[in-house]
C-alpha cells in the first residue's frame, strides 16, 4: 500500500470517529465509511459491497437518549481495510470481523464520553469568566478525542502485517468460517427487529404484512416498492378521518381546493425563507 493510501485511510478513520459522535454527515455509516476506504485503497468494488452488506446489519444501530448503540465507525473502517487492503479478506470474513469491532468501538466511545465530563467542568470555568472563545475550543477538543478514538486503533491495525492477519484467520476451522457465513445471511433480522420495534403500533402492522406479501411473491424491484409505499402512505393520509375531520373544514365538499391551499401555504413558507 502506498503512503498516500495509508494517510487517506487514517483521515477517513478520524472522520468516521467524529461522525460516530456527531451523527450529522453520516461518514461513520458503513455504506460511506467502507466505500471511502475502498476508494483510498483503490479497491472500490469490494469497499462498496462490504459497505452495503454491513449497512444492512447496522440499520437499527441508533443512539437514543443516553443509550449507546454498537459502533459502526470502528467496525466499518477496520473491516474495510482488512478487505480492501493488503490482507485481502473476503467480504464474508469482513462482515464476521465487524461485529466484535463494533463492540470494541462501543466500549471506546463510552470511555471517551466519560472523559469529556472533565472537559465540561473546564468549560464551566470558561463560562465563569465569560470567555466564549475558550468555551468553543473546549467543545471542539471533545470532537478531536472522538476522532482519535477510531484513528489510533486503525493505526495499530495498519502496523500489523497482512501475513499475520491472514495467518490468524487461516487458523480458524472451516466449520466456524462457513457457519459465520451462514449467520451473516440472517443476522440482518436483528436490525429489522430493532427498527420495527421502534415504529410498530397496532395501526401500522398491516402495512408491514402488505409489504412482506408483495415482496415474497412478486418480482417488483425496490424502486417500484418504494413508489408503492409512498403512494400507500399518501392515500392513507388523504383518507384517514383522523387527518381530515379537524384540519380542513371545507375539505369534505371539495378535496382539490384543500390540497391546493396546502400547497399554496407551503409555497408561501418557502418564499419567506
Amino acid at each position: 500500500m502506498s503512503a498516500i493510501s495509508i494517510i487517506l485511510v487514517l483521515i477517513i478513520s478520524f472522520l468516521a470517529g467524529i461522525e460516530g459522535i456527531l451523527d450529522e454527515w453520516e461518514f461513520h455509516q458503513p455504506i460511506l465509511a467502507c466505500t471511502m476506504v475502498g476508494i483510498a485503497t483503490g479497491n472500490i468494488a469490494s469497499g462498496v459491497l462490504l459497505g452495503g452488506s454491513l449497512q444492512m446489519i447496522a440499520l437499527g444501530w441508533m443512539n437514543i437518549g443516553a443509550a449507546i448503540a454498537p459502533d459502526a465507525a470502528l467496525a466499518s473502517v477496520v473491516s474495510a481495510w482488512l478487505v480492501c487492503g493488503p490482507s485481502h479478506l473476503s467480504v464474508k470474513e469482513g462482515i464476521a470481523i465487524a461485529i466484535p469491532l463494533a463492540i470494541a468501538g462501543q466500549v471506546l466511545t463510552i470511555f471517551v464520553r466519560t472523559i469529556v465530563v472533565g472537559l465540561v467542568h473546564a468549560a464551566d470555568g470558561a463560562a465563569d469568566t465569560g470567555n466564549l472563545h475558550k468555551l468553543d475550543l473546549i467543545h471542539l477538543t471533545g470532537l478531536v478525542l472522538q476522532g482519535l478514538r477510531i484513528m489510533i486503533p486503525m493505526g495499530l491495525v495498519l502496523l500489523a502485517s497482512p501475513q499475520a492477519v491472514q495467518g490468524a484467520l487461516k487458523a480458524i476451522p472451516d466449520v466456524i468460517t462457513n457457519g459465520l457465513n451462514v449467520a451473516g445471511g440472517f443476522i440482518v433480522a436483528v436490525g429489522y427487529a430493532m427498527v420495527i420495534n421502534m415504529m410498530a403500533n397496532s395501526e401500522l402492522w398491516p402495512w408491514f404484512f402488505i409489504g412482506f406479501a408483495m415482496s415474497a411473491i412478486t418480482e417488483l424491484n425496490l424502486i417500484a416498492m418504494g413508489i408503492l409505499g409512498l403512494c400507500f402512505a399518501l392515500i392513507y393520509l388523504q383518507l384517514s378521518p383522523r387527518f381530515n375531520g379537524s384540519s380542513n373544514g371545507n375539505g369534505n365538499d371539495n378535496s382539490d381546493s384543500g390540497n391546493l391551499s396546502a400547497e399554496d401555504e407551503l409555497d408561501r413558507e418557502l418564499e419567506d425563507l
Binding site: 427498527v195 420495527i196 402495512w207 402488505i210 412482506f212 416498492m225 409505499g229 400507500f232
Partner: peptide
C-alpha cells in the same frame, strides 16, 4: 407507514 411497508419488503 412507508417505513413499516419497506421493512416488510426487506424481510
Amino acid at each position: 407507514i412507508l417505513g413499516m411497508f419497506i421493512m416488510g419488503v426487506l424481510v
